[in-house]
Design a protein around this nucleic acid. Structure first.
Lengths: 331, 331
DNA sequence: ATGAAAGCGCTAACAA
DNA sequence: TTGTTAGCGCTTTCAT
C-alpha cells in the first residue's frame, strides 16, 4: 500500500501539501493540486484511516453489538445500519455475543481497543442491572441503546413501544372474541421481552380476563425454544390464540401447531412482533406488530454519528411507532 | 482512555518496560512487572490495537464481505466465523454489499483503508469475470474465497461441491420415481448457483430424462424471488418435485405451493440446499443438502489467519463434503 | 502557497 | 534488567 510519503516524493512536494490536497484545503496552488491528484490516481493511493485516527482521534468506525446473528430482526437492522453508515462514510464493526454476557463484554473490549468512535448496543438484557457497566462505557464514547428506553442512563435510545404494541395485538384478539389467549414470552428478566409481556397482561386485565399461568410459556429467543415452549403450553391448556413476543418465536409456535394438526387461524390464531420479512412468507402468513426497522436503524445511526461529530449534541430517547399488521394467521 | 505513557508514568518506569510487560517479555524484573500490572489494572488500561497496528503493520482484524445479511446461510456462517476469530483474538469486520457490485468494491476499499490483515469474500458472482480485480486485491493481502474453487486465482478457497450436492438430491428424486423435476435456479451467471444447476442437469441426463425449459425457474437469491419464480413455473408445467438451489429459496417455493393448496410431499416434493437451521422449522420440514457451515467457517478463518501470520503458508483450496438430509418435504 | 517538525500510542533496535 | 530513540502514516502548528 502506498503512503502519503510515496505520493509526496513522486509529486515532488511535501507530505503537508499532499495532506492539504486530500483534505480539500484551498491553500494549495491549482497546478500543484492537479499534479498531486494525478500521482494519487496513478498510485491508486488512499489515506490510511488508521493513521488518520491515530492523529485525529477519530476512525469513522463504530461498533454494533447484537445478541444473535441468526435473529432476522437483527439481520434487517444491520442491513439498514450499514446503509445509513455508508451515507456518512462510516463503517460498522458488528459483533454478536451469541447471548453470552462474558462474550459481549469481551467484544466491547475488543472494539474499544480498535478506537471505535461510538457504539450501538442491541440488548435484551436488564439495563438497570448493568447500569454501572453502561455508565462507565458511556463515559468513554457515545452510546445508542436499542429497543428500550435509556432509563436515565447517559446514553441515547431508539425503540418502539413493545408494551403498546403487544397490547394492541392482544386487544385485537379480544375484540375478535378470543378469551383464552396464550403467550410465549422470553425467559428471565429481559426487559425487552417483559415489557411486551406486560402489554399482554394489561390488555387482559382491562377486559376483566384473568391472566393464567398455564397460558404462559417461557422460551429463549429462538425458533426452537418457542417450539418447545408451545408444546409444553399445549399440554397444560388449549388457547384459541397464541402470541409470541418476537416473530422468530412465532415461527416456532406455528411449527408446533402445524405439527399437531391444528388449523390456523380457525382453531388457534397466532400473532407475533417485529414484522421481519419472513413473516409474510410463512403458511399462513403471520399477523404481527410491525416495528419500523429501517427507521429505527437509520435514527440510531444518525443519532450516534451526530453525537460523535459534535460533542455538544445531547443524548435523547427516540421513540417510533409500531403498528399492527393483520395477515392470515388471524381471522 | 489511558495510554501506555500514563501507565509508565504512574508505575515510574519507561514505556518500553510497560510494553515488555504487555508482551510477556521475560526481560523484566518480577517486582517491576507486578507494579506495572497493578497500575494497568488500576487504570483498566488496554493497549490500542490501532497504535500497535500502526507500528507492527498488523491489526488482528480481518474483513468479511457478504452479499446479504438477510440470507440465513450467511448469518450462520458469520456466527461461526466470529467464534473462530475470537479463538485467535482476531475480530471480523463484516460488510454486506446487498448484491450491489459498486457497493461491494466500496466496502472493500473502506476495509483496506482500515488496515485489515486479510479478507474473506463470499461471492456468488463470476470469479473469472472479476479475475483482475481479485488478482490485484490478492497482491495486497491474503484472501479466502468462499463457496467456490479458486480457479487458479492467487487466493485460498473453501467450499463444498454444489454440483455433487444437487446431483445427489436430484438422483434421490429420480430413484423415488420422479420424472418431472422442476428447479428454481439463480439469475444470470452466478457460478455458485450455476454449478448447482449443472448437477441437476447431469443427474437428469444420466437417467435419460430430458431437461425441459418449462421446468426451470429463475430467481434472485431471495425468498420472495423464489416465490414468484415458482408461480411462473407452475403456469408452464406441473412437476412432481421442485429443487431450489438454496434453502432460502426453498422457503419461497414452499410458500407458493402451500398457497396453491398442493399437498407436500404427496403432490409435489421439495428439496433445498444449505441446511440452514430454519429448514427443520418449516411445515413440512425441508429435505436439503447440508453444507457443513460451521466447518466451512472455521476452515476459512483458520486458513486466513494462518496466511496472515505466516507469509510462507501457501494458498489452498479446501473442499468439504456436503450430504443429503431427508426430511418431510420428500417422501 | 509551501514545508519542516512535532506528535498521536505503540514496539524494536540499540545502549547502558 | 531497564531506558533512550526512532519511526509506523498522518495532520497540524508554526515558519517561511
Amino acid at each position: 500500500m502506498p503512503t502519503i510519503s510515496d505520493v509526496a516524493k513522486l509529486a515532488d512536494v511535501s507530505k503537508t501539501t499532499v495532506s492539504r490536497v486530500l483534505n480539500n484545503s484551498d491553500l494549495v496552488n491549482y497546478k500543484t493540486k492537479q499534479k498531486v491528484l494525478e500521482v494519487i490516481k496513478e498510485l491508486s493511493y488512499t489515506p490510511s484511516i488508521i493513521a488518520q485516527g491515530m492523529r485525529g482521534q477519530k476512525t469513522r468506525t463504530f461498533g454494533v453489538v447484537i445478541p444473535d446473528f441468526k435473529n432476522l430482526y437483527y439481520s434487517e437492522f444491520l442491513e439498514h445500519v450499514e446503509e445509513a453508515a455508508r451515507k456518512h462514510e462510516y463503517i460498522a464493526i458488528v459483533c454478536s455475543s451469541e447471548m453470552d454476557t462474558e462474550r459481549e463484554r469481551d467484544n466491547i473490549d475488543q472494539l474499544l481497543r480498535r478506537n471505535i468512535d461510538g457504539l450501538i448496543v442491541c440488548w435484551y438484557k436488564d439495563v438497570i442491572a448493568n447500569r454501572s457497566f453502561l455508565e462507565k462505557l458511556a463515559r468513554k464514547l457515545p452510546i445508542v441503546l436499542m429497543d428500550q428506553p435509556s432509563c436515565g442512563l447517559p446514553v441515547s435510545a431508539v425503540y418502539s413501544d413493545g408494551y403498546k404494541g403487544i397490547k394492541t395485538l392482544t386487544n385485537y384478539f379480544i375484540e375478535k372474541g378470543h378469551r383464552k389467549i396464550g403467550i410465549i414470552k422470553s425467559l428471565d428478566k429481559f426487559p425487552v421481552g417483559n415489557i411486551r409481556f406486560e402489554g399482554y397482561v394489561s390488555a387482559l386485565r382491562e377486559h376483566g380476563i384473568r391472566v393464567t399461568e398455564n397460558l404462559i410459556g417461557n422460551a429463549d429467543w429462538t425458533v426452537g425454544g418457542a417450539f418447545e415452549a408451545t408444546k409444553k403450553l399445549l399440554m397444560k391448556s388449549r388457547p384459541t390464540a397464541i402470541i409470541a413476543v418476537t416473530d422468530l418465536m412465532a415461527i416456532g409456535v406455528l411449527k408446533c401447531l402445524n405439527d399437531k394438526g391444528f388449523s390456523i387461524p380457525k382453531e388457534i390464531a397466532i400473532g407475533g412482533f417485529d414484522n421481519i420479512s419472513l413473516t409474510s412468507m410463512m403458511s399462513p402468513s403471520l399477523t404481527t406488530v410491525a416495528q419500523p426497522i429501517q427507521m429505527l436503524a437509520q435514527k440510531a445511526t444518525d443519532q450516534l454519528i451526530k453525537r460523535i461529530e459534535n460533542r455538544y449534541v445531547r443524548n435523547r430517547d427516540i421513540e417510533l411507532q409500531n403498528r399492527l399488521i393483520i395477515r392470515d394467521s388471524t381471522e
